[in-house]
Nucleic acid binder design. Structure first.
Lengths: 221, 221
DNA sequence: TCCGACCTGACAGGACGCTGACAGAGAGCG
DNA sequence: CGCTCTCTGTCAGCGTCCTGTCAGGTCGGA
């Protein structure tokens, strides 16, 4: 899961990054409204966390421009305490949720997870496809109920496939969401991760559609 | 849009009903946990607004039981001020959003709209012509509902014919679309692909109009 | 009947994806 | 600070499946 955190206070930004990464997200940060707009418009994120008070371009304007361009990733807005009119404005501008400052990191994590789940139309933290089950709270993986140790990278991969379980996910898209654009890896890195996961999970969990990409077996068709 | 508001404080419940109805929703209210569980489990709502402090059955338990039964309508949870652990619990139990009391009615409306907007969508990318069905999500092909293994190239060919099912597609156009201009193949390459496909799909799926091109049978052409 | 358009089976080269080995980076720890 | 252990990207090699080509065969129209 790839997250963009837009926050000009460097201390808060660093805390966000740490907490989100500990929760298994791939985090990119950005401190400026113009940069944020550009990144959100050109890159593909599963979630954006957006501070409203920004240098460069105001957060609300950034959000409105994204929505006007048809970008529909979930956006979690950070507002100053008590500025509830700002919150309503934010939601009307297309935000999916807001959080008043100061906030607990636990809350950010919980809301981030909820937003990502909801953007896929699912409700609970426990998700399964076939014999595979992911627990977003514990970042744990189980096959037929038996826990399987998985590294952070492996979990990210599985959780992205789970989020898009109804379709075949192209390797380029997986690479982008696992690593981000800045440090691209060779396609083979992905194959290596898949191979290691398959060894752990056994056959019949991760499927390949040659020429198209990967998918979770037993999830619909 | 049909909304269930679960709230034991009658004054708040009335305010909610008024505000939501003014915003164009069809609102039903309920003051008791047991009733709420029954209604949410048997009726179909576009949104549920759920107070956590309830007589009868606790709001969190109601929510969990709904989710356990596979009910996945969006749920907006109302929590006491400052009880952020409760909020995190609520979200983990499957809530899609929460709102701390006291709240402004404008906020409820805005969030209700956002939640319903989010939960919409989700289209299946199925296309069919005659007895042939293509699933753009799974990149899969089925004939009379029976899945047929198809390679990437074969799928691309079928999907192009499907896109232009109302007309006969000339071989030159198919070649161009399948391979691009740069590396052209002999016309026979296309014929080979068609032949392999016909063997898999059986007769009466891909038609030939001698001297003009190919088309999908049973699709008006 | 003749010709060109199209079909088909066989085949080989190659693209694609999988795997095991290896090493560098980083975290944890004494 | 140095050691160890885990994680993970890279590389090389391998097997499998795909697919273009070729050499015929078949069909349809004039």
């Amino acid at each position: 899961m790839r997250v963009l955190a837009v926050e000009d206070d460097q201390r808060i930004a660093a805390d966000l990054k740490t907490a989100l990464e500990a929760a298994g997200f791939l985090v990119e940060t950005c401190e400026d409204g113009e940069d944020a707009w550009f990144l959100g418009d050109t890159e593909s994120y599963d979630l954006v966390i957006l501070d409203l008070g920004l240098p460069g371009m105001d957060g609300l304007s950034v959000l409105k421009k994204w929505r006007a361009n048809g970008r529909d990733m979930p956006v979690l807005v950070l507002t100053a305490r008590g500025a509830w009119t700002e919150r309503v404005e934010g939601i009307d501008a297309g935000a999916d949720d807001y959080l008043p400052k100061p906030f607990r990191m636990e809350e950010v994590i919980a809301r981030a997870r909820a937003l990502i789940r909801r953007s896929a139309g699912r409700a609970t933290a426990l998700q399964s496809a076939g014999e595979l089950t992911l627990d977003a709270n514990r970042m744990s993986v189980a096959i037929r109920g038996v826990p399987v140790p998985a590294t952070a990278l492996e979990y990210r991969l599985l959780s992205y496939l789970m989020l898009h379980r109804e379709r075949v996910v192209p390797p380029t898209e997986l690479l982008e969401h696992l690593y981000g654009d800045d440090d691209a890896r060779e396609a083979n890195a992905l194959e290596a991760v898949i191979a290691r996961l398959r060894r752990k999970l056994g056959p019949g969990v991760i499927g390949t559609r040659r020429g198209f990409g990967y998918f979770l077996e037993g999830s619909g068709a």
